[in-house]
Design a protein around this nucleic acid. Structure first.
Lengths: 187, 187
DNA sequence: TTTAAATTGTGATGTTTGTCACGCAGGGGA
DNA sequence: TCCCCTGCGTGACAAACATCACAATTTAAA
């Protein structure tokens, strides 16, 4: 499990054993069962999570109780309600397991100490944040340029494993269409 | 003009005069006229831009030549085709002036030297990148949860000045609806 | 000033997508 | 074993939105 985290970080910044020990001392680990919540809307957001194994979904519920999937988080992904995390406000989204999931947990305080204590890690998080920004912008682009069918095909192409692991109704929610429409598209 | 950049950075990290001189030495400045391009699709992306005054739009043109506005960049915003910038690949988007615009230009090399040479600046960019990621995610949420009229009203509320500065047809493109639909919504 | 181009509004019509309703199949718990 | 819940497909209809066409107005250029 530690090895997974180390390899993930070392894709961007190489670490000595001592440095990795320092990094590791800022994390805790936790296991969750399918359907458990890591973050609940309205609660405070203590951690950002690194997914070692399993699958999470980040959910936004609007006033009328309709559920929208903001993102899925698979192995090697970082996830949280980052707005609430960084600003220390109440969560507006929920983070829930779609499968049994193992994560590393990083509190905001530990995140800040890690960045301050080891510039390599600040650099690592900068690279991750840039990648996250670019990825979100690509998703915005797909909403601007593509209809439901095209978005569906792009998702299928990019993350084929999701179609084995996630109910179609949730994929529909991620794509921003009704489950009925998705069902008709997939022909 | 320098003062604008300094104040912008110091909202996040305070700088000594020497530090700011170091920062400044990595930037160049440039002025563009309305309708000029800072980045053209297909060309290399030399710089990320900090907008001192004026207004830019980031545009994606799909295969059939239809123009989609990915974002507007006003005073105090950073903008570029960040994917092409960070990966040193050809631009897939264009960056064009909607008004006469003054910018600071930062090459990738200078960006990296700045981050390596002054941890405060790496921290500054990390904060900016996180904010950018969160902002994009909010925009994704608006596509998932809101119809055209609601997105229009959210934009009006958040950036009222845009409605004086930008043709409605471009706002429509940013919102992902046709200009005719936007025209009918605005009643 | 005159002329051309860009911007905006609006009607008519077609397409896409959402909503409601129903049926069917499969799997896990009592 | 039985049953209920979840997931999935599909028909009928309504709502949202795109597209095409045209006119009026404003802006910018010659």
């Amino acid at each position: 499990m530690q090895q997974k985290l180390r390899e993930h970080i070392e894709k961007i910044v190489p670490l000595t054993d001592d440095e990795f020990a320092f990094v590791l001392s800022h994390f805790t680990t936790k296991s969750y069962k399918k359907r458990e919540f890591l973050i609940r809307e309205g609660n405070s957001v203590k951690y950002a999570y690194f997914v070692v194994s399993g699958l999470l979904m980040l959910i936004y519920n609007n006033e009328s109780g309709k559920q929208h999937i903001v993102s899925f988080a698979m192995e090697d992904w970082w996830e949280s309600d980052f707005l609430a995390y960084h600003t220390q406000t109440k969560a507006t989204m929920s983070l829930q397991c779609l499968e049994d999931t193992d994560v590393f947990c990083l509190s905001l305080e530990d995140y800040q100490q890690l960045c301050a204590g080891l510039q390599k890690m600040e650099h690592f998080f900068l690279r991750k944040a840039n990648a996250g920004h670019i990825g979100s912008q690509q998703r915005i682009l797909s909403f601007l340029t593509s209809n439901a069918k095209e978005r569906y095909e792009q998702l299928l192409k990019r993350y084929p494993s999701l179609f084995q692991r996630v109910p179609k109704s949730l994929l529909a929610s991620y794509l921003g269409v009704s489950r009925e429409t998705l069902s008709r598209l997939a022909r």
